Amino acid sequence: MRPLQAEIRLDALRDNYRLARQLAGGRTLAVVKANAYGHGVVRCARALDGEADGFAVACIEEALELRAAGIVAPILLLEGVFEPDEYSLCAELGLWCVVQSDIQLAMLETSPVASLPSVWLKMDSGMHRAGFAPDDYAAAWQRLAGSGKALEIVKMSHFARADEPDQVMTQAQIETFDAACRALPGAASLANSAGLMVHPSARREWSRAGIMLYGVNPLPQGMGPALKPVMRLTSRIFAVREIAAGEPLGYGHNFVATRRTRVGLVACGYADGYPRLASTGSPVAIDGVRSRVIGRVSMDMLTVDLTDLPAAGLGSEVELWGGAINVNEVAACAGTIAYELLCNVKRARFV
């Protein structure tokens, strides 16, 4: 069997959720969209079931998977519905739903459902991606309240730059939200993971913890609380060779040895979710000792530098991230973010 595996540490997931809830000082949704950021949505939801105040997913098909797996806790659809008849399914399954546009609100107003248990009305407080404009928000809230279609209305918005603590944008969004909601009763939800960590004024009755649950810090290095990585992605070396100084390696010959170089061939590539752009220089740990990727990452293989690791060889464990190697380091080498790397892991054996 191919030795690539993703170890999912559920104890770490639970510890990270407890930390998020402690920071929030109130109820906290565990965001498990995109297959729990690549970690396996059913196993993660079951690990948090009975502890999490609820879950958040992107769309109704993700919620259906959780309900089929026996999850009875509240589930919020962050994107809302796409078709009018989905509201009936939401009512049948007891799902909570975001309403972020006049179209979604109109569909709910004319829906045959008596009511939904909780509707989260989204404001565009400055991200300009989704939600009602601040000047239109109170009117939308009154429409929703007057429709009788929501047993509860939660006011919400989403931050554009909460992971940049020095930016004033987050505080501006908070002030915009508060000004537009001043006369509107009920609970609110603003803070995502970064908001929980560094923006105390964003903590309201509900928070939404996403990437921090999986042990990834969205803030600049050295900021924020300690988190426990949930996924540890590893493989093994299955071939070793040496190349002389001046010899190229791999596709495109973008690595040329400057000395006699001992090369390990690892069973992992971009088809498995490892980023192709994280080529020469991306960190790995070989039997616990840091080394680097050399050459271009291939579809199902990559090559690592063993020159200074004489004890490493056939069968040596190669950690791609999750222990000695921080996934944020790998993401930086690939010019992307850790979210993308975790979501892309699909062909590893999950343990």
Rank of each mutant, 00 (worst) to 15 (best):
P3A: 12
L10F: 01
L13A: 11
R14C: 07
R14Q: 13
L23H: 11
A24T: 03
A24R: 04
G25F: 10
G26I: 07
A36W: 13
G38I: 05
H39P: 01
R43Q: 15
A45I: 13
R46V: 02
L48H: 13
A52E: 13
V57Y: 00
C59K: 09
A63I: 02
I71D: 02
L77P: 04
L77S: 05
V81Y: 07
V81M: 06
E83D: 04
P84M: 03
D85Q: 15
L89A: 08
C90W: 11
A91F: 09
E92Q: 15
E92V: 02
G94Q: 08
Q100R: 06
Q104F: 02
S111N: 06
D124E: 06
G131F: 15
A139K: 12
W141Q: 03
L151Q: 14
E152Y: 05
H158M: 14
D163M: 10
D163I: 08
D166P: 02
Q173W: 12
I174R: 12
A183F: 04
A183Q: 14
S193T: 07
S193W: 07
G195L: 05
V198H: 09
V198S: 09
I211W: 09
G215E: 04
G222S: 13
K228H: 13
V230M: 04
L233P: 09
I237R: 02
I243K: 12
A245M: 00
H253D: 15
F255S: 02
F255T: 05
V266A: 08
P275V: 05
R276C: 14
S279C: 11
P283K: 01
V284G: 01
V284D: 02
I286E: 00
R292Q: 11
S298W: 03
S298C: 06
M301Y: 08
L306H: 08
P310N: 14
A312G: 08
G313F: 01
G323C: 05
N328Q: 14
A331L: 07
L342R: 03
L342S: 02
C343P: 02
R349F: 07
